[in-house]
Design a protein around this nucleic acid. Structure first.
Lengths: 247, 247
DNA sequence: TATTACAGTGAACATATGTTTACTGAAAGT
DNA sequence: ACTTTCAGTAAACATATGTTCACTGTAATA
């Protein structure tokens, strides 16, 4: 594909453009020390390290967002995208799985932010469910790569990652149950039952996210139907929850 | 890893044992023509072809069952397991995705069999939900590779495969809705609503399958809790369904 | 019986991957 | 000022991948 048969990994490493495009400056040895290139904030040693670590994470997310699923991406791809030599990866992560766990944590943070935002805005008075779903839909769209990752790794990724995601889901469900409690929703239910129901809500949410992300671009009608279905499913769940009697 | 540095692909192709194990007959040229080896049933040309095609599919499933997720497996791995040279793959599938679609279809068949069996046994009189879940649990255990594949490819796999799985899920939900209808369950609901609810049930089922498959071996207690949670979630759904009023 | 179709072979191809090793230069610690 | 630490480099490694091509033997066909 490339013109030179002896092109090393670095040739395309600094294009910083989308790869697989014939670049004319293949040989230009303008190798400005990247350390200087991204002098945005602090420059202590640890700050710099943390910054490239974050760059690796972001690159992984970017690649996931750009089509290829989590399990399809490789160490070299990531370092390439991050403007780093492959070996440099090991200064930050033992292997891809460790990077994956960082992504899971980031996913957890995203979910928590979702709850926080929903809390802050307060529940829409008339149709709280539809309102919450709207917030969620926006979140999924805005941080699509994160949800793509979660959707892809929840069933796909390595054992360790699946477990980590499950844990994060469980925490999220707990927090949600707590919110519902303080909000006074479903006051008759035991905490255990509430947790069980929130678990159901969470999986439904994540399934919906996966569906939303696979929507063909622009089809607003299909999206509307999908969202409508999602809202109704949640309504069924809460209807059932309201009628639940702890045995 | 292997003793010979020039080992071709074929060295381990015929071990037929689990790979990665030092075999002593590496050099034994006992290359019995495999065509003769599996003379089980008919031997017409097309039958033979269909048989190795099935062998490829089975090998893929076996590899999935043996740990590595769907997206992690490779053409060469599969042909190795199937006792076939890599190039032979193309006589049966254009690429891995096409094999994947065959797996999806097989998954659909499995799900239909599940419904058929549940229908045949009739719904347990006292606790139909728990009974159905028992049937399901057994199914997941018996055909674990299939469910592993579905769970892994539903969010992970290529676009085409995700879509195919979604279609299969939808069909399954429809069939389930039909069964509920003829069974007289939830007679007041419109077909659309019933379909929506069955969709929710199906995703809940598949999520549960994923959880079941990741259970640490032998922990009967954890499994019991998981199943119990699963049953309760379904109960919530059906409770909600019973209270649903089409607007 | 002679001819054709074609599933499976064997070898080579270009290209990708993860991991190791010794190195360099600048920030941090003394 | 001098030494240590360590993020990032360069190059090589062994190994894996998908895909191609001309081939071979045999079942199907004529």
């Amino acid at each position: 594909m490339s013109i030179h048969s002896k092109t090393s990994d670095r040739t395309s490493a600094y294009t910083l453009q989308r790869a697989l495009r014939p670049t004319e400056n293949d040989l230009s040895t303008v190798r400005r020390t990247l350390q200087k290139a991204d002098t945005d904030t602090g420059n202590s040693r640890v700050e710099q390290k943390e910054r490239t670590r974050q760059r690796l994470i972001d690159s992984a997310l970017a690649l996931i967002g750009a089509g290829s699923g989590y399990n399809a991406l490789s160490l070299r791809e990531i370092t390439r995208e991050a403007g780093l030599v492959p070996a440099g990866f090991y200064r930050h992560f033992r292997d891809l799985d460790e990077l994956g766990l960082a992504l899971v944590e980031m996913g957890g943070v995203t979910l928590r932010r979702l709850l926080r935002e929903a809390r802050r805005d307060g529940i829409p008075p008339t149709d709280m469910l539809r309102g919450s779903v709207q917030i969620y839909r926006r979140f999924v769209a805005e941080r699509s790569e994160v949800f793509r990752f979660i959707a892809g790794a929840r069933g796909g990724g390595s054992r360790a990652i699946r477990d980590a995601i499950r844990t994060e889901e469980s925490h999220f469900a707990s927090e949600m149950a707590h919110d519902l409690r303080t909000l006074g929703t479903l006051p008759e239910l035991s905490s255990a039952t509430l947790q069980m129901i929130c678990g159901l809500v969470v999986t439904t949410m994540l399934n919906a996210a996966s569906d939303i992300l696979d929507l063909p671009e622009g089809h607003t009608q299909a999206e509307r139907e999908l969202i409508e279905n999602f809202v109704r499913q949640l309504r069924v769940v809460f209807l059932g929850a309201a009628r639940w009697r702890d045995s």
